[in-house]
Amino acid sequence: MFMDNSSEKPIYVQLAEWMMDAILSGAFPEETQVPSTTEISVTYRINPATALKGINVLVDDAILYKKRGLGMFVSSGAKERILEKRRKEFFDSFISSLIAEAEKLAITKIEIMDMIERGYTE
């Protein structure tokens, strides 16, 4: 179940992220079919328009493409594009918030670096 009702993110965004995770993990290999919006809608009990919106986000990013009359397929090179996208987001979603939280707790830059080092060794 991809949905987290306490998440601030809209459901369609959660759906897109879940689908990208699944592609990264190899659950949906490139050039294979992904579930239809109807299947997603029924399985996760969400409005089909919401499901379609989530899928369309991925179509816009060329991660999925439509085969006429067949359904949605994972684009070749989708994995690479997702990784690229995620790397870009890594700074915003992790580093910025890490620094913000560290400031709240009065942790210095040096201390953060040390912690990161420790994280890698443990």
């Binding site: 919006t37 109807t38 809608s41 029924v42 009990r45 969400i46 409005n47 089909p48």
Partner: peptide, 14 residues
Amino acid sequence: RDLFYKELLSNYSA
């Protein structure tokens, strides 16, 4: 209830 919501959605999609 779960079954109902699912049937409603698949009916609506079809």
